[in-house]
Every structure is written in C-alpha cells, then in structure tokens.
Design a protein around this nucleic acid. Sequence first.
DNA 1: GCAAGGAAAACTGTTGACAGTTGCAAGCCC
DNA 2: GGGCTTGCAACTGTCAACAGTTTTCCTTGC
Lengths: 235, 235
Amino acid sequence: MTSQAIEPIAITSLAEEAFSKLVQLITSGAYSPGQRLSESELARQLGISRGPLREALGRLEGRLVTRTPRIGIRVIDFRPEEVSQLFLVREALEGMAARLASENMTTGEIEHLRALLEEHGRQPDISAGQAYHQGVGDDDFHFATIKGARCEHLEKLLLDQVYYHLRLHRLRASAQPGRAQAAFAEHREILAALVTRNPDAAEGCMRRHIRNARLNALSSLAGSARDSREERWHA
Amino acid sequence: MTSQAIEPIAITSLAEEAFSKLVQLITSGAYSPGQRLSESELARQLGISRGPLREALGRLEGRLVTRTPRIGIRVIDFRPEEVSQLFLVREALEGMAARLASENMTTGEIEHLRALLEEHGRQPDISAGQAYHQGVGDDDFHFATIKGARCEHLEKLLLDQVYYHLRLHRLRASAQPGRAQAAFAEHREILAALVTRNPDAAEGCMRRHIRNARLNALSSLAGSARDSREERWHA
DNA sequence: GCAAGGAAAACTGTTGACAGTTGCAAGCCC
DNA sequence: GGGCTTGCAACTGTCAACAGTTTTCCTTGC
C-alpha cells in the first residue's frame, strides 16, 4: 500500500473562474480605466456562455466595473479627487493596520520585515532617487504589515478593494525627486515603531507615510503623465 | 402650453431590482446570519427567472452572502472576533470621516446636527438609561457626519458595507447600564469638536466613541443575548 | 460637406430547458 | 433500533434562443 494521499478535486464554477480571470485582467492593465467591456466579446474569448459571465461581472460591480442597464459594462475610472480620497481611506485603514500589527505581529514576522527592508536598501535605484522596486506578496512591506495586523476585515478591504483600485489607476511613485529615498526612510521608521511595539508611533508613522504618498500621487496626476504602465502605486 | 416637465423613465433591470430587494430583505432581518437562501425559491417569490437573480446574488457575494459552488448561498455570519474587527474598521473609517467633517461640513449641516442632538436629548429613554433611539437617514448622527466628510469612498465603504454588516448582526446597544447616556454624551463631544473645526479632536472623540461601542457590543455578545431583532447597532 | 433618417448588425436582458449534483426519505439488514 | 444504501425530487450550473435596445453604417437631401 502506498501512502499517497488523494487530493480532492477542487470544486469551482465557470462564474468563479471568470471572476478571477477578470480581476487579474483588469488589475494587470489589460483594460484601461473607463474602457467598455463587451459581454458578448468576453464570452467568446473566455469560451463560456453569457450566463456565468454575467454572474462574474455582477460580482465585479461596485468593485472594478460599473454597469449601466442596457448600455453595458465599463472599467471604473476615478476622477482625480476620487484618487485623492482613496489615499484618505488608505491612510485610515493602513494606520489602523500598523497599530494592530505593532501589537499582533510575531517576532519572526517583524524579523522578516527587517530583512525585507535590508534587502530593499541594497537597491541602487533608491540612492539614485529613481525608483523603489518593491516585492510582491509577502515581500511587499505594506502587504506584510497588513497581514501582521491579524484583522480579516481590514485585510479584505485593503487587499480586495483599495489595492485593486490603486493598481488599476497606475499611481506612480517617485515622480518627485527624492521620493524613493523618503519612502524607504519612512518604511524604516514604521519598522522601528513595530519593533518597539508602540501602537501610536506605528499608526502615526504609517499615516504620515500614506499622506506623503498621496501628495506624491497628486502631483503625478497634476502632471497628467499617464504614459507608463509600470505599476508604482506605493510611494 | 403647460410647463409640466416630463420625467424620464428610470432605466433599470430585473437584476438591479432584485439586488435592491435582497439588500433590504437581508439587512432588515428577513433572513438570519448563516441562513441558506434557495435560488429556486427566491426566483419563485420574486417572480423572475433565475438568470437575473443569479446576477443579483453575484453582486451580493462578498458583501452580504457567501456562495459555495453547487451547494448554494448563505447569508454571511460573523464569528465574534469578526464582529470585534468590524468595530476596528469602523473606528478607523469613522475617525477619518469625523476629521474630514470638521473641515468640510457647512455651517448649515453643523446646525442640523446640533438640532438633531437637541431633539435626541429630549428622549426620556436616554435619561432612564434604557435606550438611545436614533433617527434614520439624515436624522442619524453618524450618517450625517459621514455625509459631511465629503469623501465618497469613505461614505461608500461605511454605508454600503460596514453598516450593512452591523445591521445584519443586530448589534445591540445599551446592554450595559448607562450606555445610552454615555453614547449621547459622546455625540455631544463630537459635535463640539466639529463646531470648533478641530480635526484632531473630532477624530479622537469619534474613535473613542466607537471603541466604547465596540466594548459594549462585545459584552452583549458575551451574554449571547441574541433574543431581540430590534436594530441597535450604534452605541 | 454635413446632417438626418433608416436599416441592419450587434448588443444587452431574460427565459426556459437540459445536465449534473446534492440532500432527504424510505427501505432493508444486522 | 440504528446504520447503511438506494432512489427520487429538488436544486445548482450552464447553455441557447428570443425579444427588445442600441450602435454603426450607408444613403439621401439640402
């Protein structure tokens, strides 16, 4: 007898798979903000009938698309003042996340964060003031901090909504000279507050960091420089 | 010639109407947290085919219902620690809303809020420590404060998500003796900060108020007293 | 050349039918 | 009596067809 465990077949549906696929397509830039999505065309491309597709699009409604009855579906498109608001929401939620992280993160997680920043600090682009390339997933400073907060609601709002919106709008970093360095320095201040388990400092530093990111994003929008599809939504 | 303006016919769809109807049904308590919803039965009761209903349920997914493929739909049901988290999110968002309201509310709006509290203060139930009956819509202190913040993202998150969840779970107020009076007093402190246009004070008072509401809700849950369907999600 | 109108194509919204799956009840066996 | 198995009804997931609406393109007239 072999002790090979049999993996259960993952149960899914076409609607679910279409939803995931569309989230990935939209947030990766395959469609621009404001772009019209044709249900008929999408169904053809995905190789499914329109029923489950409509269901998936329903799930996306109010998150990444807007639907006008009888007209169709568009990828959401924020006005500049809405982008600004997004950072206010982010400030509130990520400030709270940092506060909770200072209380709930394990020693190992904080160490991971420290090592992450150390590695980030070796990027030549930062000292040159050009860019701050962050990792993805666990290697992203913000992602790791949010996870460390141990608050599913917060996490869900940030990762499944706020961050999608940031990605969709390609908010640029380092448009201002020296911003990459400043962002990195701010990360280090946040880490210091986490290490000392100081909730007020953690929240305060994170909020200031997001406020600076907001100012940076706003000046980018003022320049109307939407020429790059490179994802820089952070700092 | 009459100058009677002709109102355009509102364009909607069965899916949209079903969505609105379901939101109302779920948040008004027609279905309990965790309850199974039958698509076949709902379609019969609403008098529509299952297509648009599935679309409406798709929109509700991740907001007020969870779907398990091939099994069906359930009204969301938060564990106690998730309820607690909901108040942390609320604290962050409503704290920010109060900050923005102190900066953005018109004199008329602040006056309306003052009049609202004055009227609330005449409720005999409050001095008796029994309950704090709040109005609905514009006559609700929190609702009015959030509107006064002038931040659509914040408003949408709070009114279309956080508050739905609070209503769904029937979080009780005034379970602790004296809570109604304390809640009312806290409202007045928030108002004072708004009147003086002090963002830090407004945020600080609102956050403390929500923290106290959280403690109150948690002690209600500890008592496992879910015997009333009366909607008291506030204080 | 431009604007208006009409026709056709493509689209969106909805329904009903079919296939596969799940849950419940009844029957049988120990 | 309890547990297990089987069968059937009801359900969920999907598709294709139909009806109504919108968009696009072409023609005509000024």
